[in-house]
Design a protein around this nucleic acid. Sequence first.
DNA 1: GTTATCCGTGTGTATATGCACGTATGATGA
DNA 2: TCATCATACGTGCATATACACACGGATAAC
Lengths: 146, 146
Amino acid sequence: MENNHKHFKTPSPCNCLNIRRASRAVTHFYDKILQPSGLTISQLSLLKHLKQVEPITISELANIMRIDRTTLNRNMKSLVDHGLITITPGQDPRTRQVMMTSKGTATVNNASQLWDKAQASVKDYLGETDLAILVKLLSKLEALVP
Amino acid sequence: MENNHKHFKTPSPCNCLNIRRASRAVTHFYDKILQPSGLTISQLSLLKHLKQVEPITISELANIMRIDRTTLNRNMKSLVDHGLITITPGQDPRTRQVMMTSKGTATVNNASQLWDKAQASVKDYLGETDLAILVKLLSKLEALVP
DNA sequence: GTTATCCGTGTGTATATGCACGTATGATGA
DNA sequence: TCATCATACGTGCATATACACACGGATAAC
């Protein structure tokens, strides 16, 4: 008989620690699968969002991604260095316009195939029902902070 | 009638991004509440674990906390600087012995009262049933990575 | 039009995370 | 004994996160 409880690790009494651990594990899982693409899940997420809304300013992209503006700013650095995106002055001189390069598009397309596998693995692992429950709980948790 | 869906934010199609966002939000929630204690939830977690098993070596503590050894190493630095813990040579000269100071004990006791509030808030927010479901799903997710 | 305010951005600082590599020491085996 | 292996640790590097602050430009108030 299958020993199912091997899949579980003893949770902490701290709710926060539990979600932080799970977040680290899932991030590691995705990063490992994405490794051949040269992108982390954080970077792929950035590129995927950008692909849908480019050209866009930094602050607007940060809003859409629901991430801190300055964090996004720094996370873009390596993508610029690798020639995946460009940052140019916007029409309003205060703003900066973020766009994907063709290399960026190619990279995200390649990485997306790996991402699909990771997504499918998680779905298989949790099952569709539990995954849906998880997503709902996580989105509620995210709203814990306004 | 209560408008419950205000509590939710649109989830991403990416399972990983969802848990990362939730993790950031919950961490921020705890850190804010813990702020008067001068500790982050990460630091409090370290001290709480240490309190239960001290004296202990760095690698053993890392194992118990299920965190990377080198991450733990660096996270301890500020706690040493603030005089909350001490790191001394262990009996096996390769090892280092981590212990709490009296100031560390006092600080963790103080912070734990704030932590109780954060825990209660989350329990109230999700409800006991959903929280139990969440904890189970998170512990399974953590096991996604061996 | 000048002043006050708001907005978009960049950077300093701090924490958090973990991989790769090097070093020192204990343990083991020939 | 000495060579090999395993263990414990520290550090360089890279990424991720976000708060506080400053700067410059747009916009509104008057």
